[in-house]
Nucleic acid binder design. Structure first.
Length: 524
RNA sequence: GCGGCUAUAGUUUAAUGGUAAAACCUCUGCCUUCCAAGCAGGUGUCGUCGGUUCGAUUCCGACUAGCCGCUCCA
């Protein structure tokens, strides 16, 4: 009998297992490692490849309406200007030197305290539903505390600002990206209420820069792509002109992307070099985008379950309208319950025609299709499911990892570590084990089966140590089945093997033909 | 990047101002008729660089990396 036991610290166990069994190593480990970069070991590279292959087969091969491409990692710098990444893909940050708090400059608001037309100080507050109101309240407190006589100018938000309405007796709340250097010294930290502890905002563009060509001057600056999506937009016309795609259709790509994250965290969850699987699904400008959006969300959820992620760990997060980028019509994230919390796994965004329009404007090349029905040109709209391979990898490990108490016939309880990976993803599909190492009849038959199986599947042959130990070794690698060549195989009729199933540890007898049928059914 | 904690074998952990120990893993051989058996062997620059000291894995500093917060959203 088996009973699940919750590992005391799942993340530590995962990192340890990943290292021990050769799934994931720290990059450049012998030099002390490099923050935010990882290497995939022999088992890891198989698992990762299987994730990619499953996605590619289901997304591209098994659909009529999606084609694949692979675009370069370094693209023309103007791509990133048009996409908004050069200007917008940065987070200006401000530190409070006293409280050690860190704020995003665009979320921290300030306003001068103006009494009878004279600035006597500043107030600050974090962005909220009523930022201007809070600031005004703070300004009034300041006035009372300092016992200053006079008329306090009302502090209002930029959106309600209108000269005709308010005139000069009001001041506008601004965010810290607009603060002058002399103002920053006078603005109090929201943590302490005292001025003088805030640092100027420091821009932090998350794109890695490099130079193309021999000269490294300003004209040669290029970027490592922070997402693969722009490749699909930039090649949109090429794909339309050279293939027979018809709306609605998608362009898919799997590839590495790079972001100079401020804080890589949680193992491979947020790293600086990562792999994305993105698909841009182009639809008519008049199409029911919300319906297509929902269809893709369901497709993604179904796919995640098909590779073995449990329903119980998946959820949806709909981005609130007011937090969306201005071009976005709606974004839904499929969330996964990681050991460190519920985090985004797959973002499905409805991006309108923003990207194609941006590139049409920046390049001067129209990115339009012709509508036969209305005889009009239009820019297609797009639905974008974007997911990280490494995040799926981690989700699959976290969901599949289990430590069980196994009781043997004598009543002894032992711990068994098992990775319940879907047969679709398992790095090794079958392990072929001769019951004993020193009996040639067994090893010869085992080797023959191994040679036959490995033509089609990733298989391992193992004759080291006792049979039970080999079973457990395969459990940790996530191998769904072991076949053991035993004395019944060579002495009894029928040429049958023992099939040992990973999750239940049950054993049945199976013929070679049945084994291949089993694999064909589950490994697809 | 800022603050707190941390760094000893592949993994998990000991001990120590006088050049390190155990278990597991791994490898070799023997043995082994189904769930980490046994026996005999093999495998180690105490994260890096400096400083204090006769002597540093141990004390100090810097760096690097990890964990936790701020931040982030593939």
């Amino acid at each position: 009998m088996t009973s699940p036991a919750e590992p005391t610290n799942l993340m530590e166990s995962l990192v340890s297992l990943a290292k021990r069994r050769g799934f994931i190593y720290a990059s450049s480990e012998i030099y002390g490692g490099l923050n935010g970069f990882f290497d995939y070991g022999p088992l890891g590279v198989e698992l990762k490849r299987n994730i990619r292959d499953c996605w590619w087969r289901d997304m591209v091969h098994r659909r009529d309406d999606v084609v694949g491409i692979e675009t370069s990692i370094i693209m023309h710098p103007k791509v990133w200007e048009a996409s908004g990444h050069v200007a917008g893909f940065s987070d200006p940050l401000i530190d409070c030197k006293v409280s050690k708090q860190r704020y995003r400059a665009d979320q921290l608001f300030f306003a001068p305290i103006v009494i009878d037309g004279k600035t006597v100080g500043y107030v600050s507050a974090l962005e909220s539903e009523n930022t201007a109101g809070e600031l005004h309240e703070l300004a009034e407190q300041f006035k009372r505390k300092k016992a200053i006589q006079g008329t306090l100018s009302k502090i209002v938000g930029r959106l309600v600002w209108n000269d005709a309405l308010f005139g000069e007796s009001h001041v506008i709340a601004k965010d810290m990206t607009e603060a002058r250097e002399d103002e920053i010294a006078l603005i109090p930290s929201p943590a302490t209420g005292e001025p003088g502890s805030l640092t100027p905002p420091r821009a932090f563009n998350m794109m890695f820069q490099t130079n193309v060509g021999a000269m490294s001057d300003a004209s040669s600056v290029a970027y490592l792509r922070p997402e693969t999506a722009q490749g699909m937009f930039v090649d949109f016309k090429n794909v339309v002109d050279t293939t027979r795609v018809k709306l609605p259709f998608g362009i898919a790509q799997i590839g590495k992307s790079f972001r100079n994250e401020i804080t890589p965290r949680n193992f491979i969850f947020r790293s600086r070099e990562f792999e994305q699987m993105e698909m841009e699904y182009f639809i008519h400008e008049d199409a029911d985008w919300a319906k297509v959006h929902e269809e893709w969300i369901v497709w993604c959820e179904t796919w995640l379950k098909s590779i073995g992620l449990p329903d119980s760990h998946l959820s949806r997060f709909t981005h609130p309208k007011e937090k969306l980028a201005f071009y976005s019509r709606g974004t839904v994230d499929i969330m996964f319950k990681y050991p460190f919390g519920v985090q985004e796994l797959w973002g499905i965004a409805a991006r309108g025609s923003y990207d194609l329009t941006q590139h049409a404007n920046a390049s001067g090349k129209p990115q339009e299709l012709f509508d036969e029905a209305s005889k009009k040109k239009f820019v297609p709209h797009v639905i974008e499911p974007a997911v990280g391979v490494d995040r799926i990898f981690l989700a699959v490990l976290a969901a599949g990892y289990a430590e069980e108490d196994v009781t043997d016939e004598k009543g002894n309880v032992e711990k068994r570590t098992v990775l319940r990976l879907s047969p679709r993803l398992a790095p090794v599909k079958v392990a072929v084990l001769p019951l004993l190492k020193n009996k040639e009849l067994l090893t010869n038959r085992a080797k023959a089966l191994y040679t036959k199986l490995r033509r089609n599947y990733a298989v391992q042959y193992d004759d080291g140590g006792a049979i039970g130990k080999r079973y457990r070794r395969q459990d940790e690698a996530g191998t769904p089945w072991c076949v053991t060549i035993d004395f019944d195989t060579i002495e009894k009729e029928g040429d049958t093997f023992t099939l040992r199933e990973r999750d239940s540890m049950k054993q049945t007898r199976i013929t070679e033909a049945e084994l291949f049928a089993l694999l064909a059914e589950h490994v697809y």
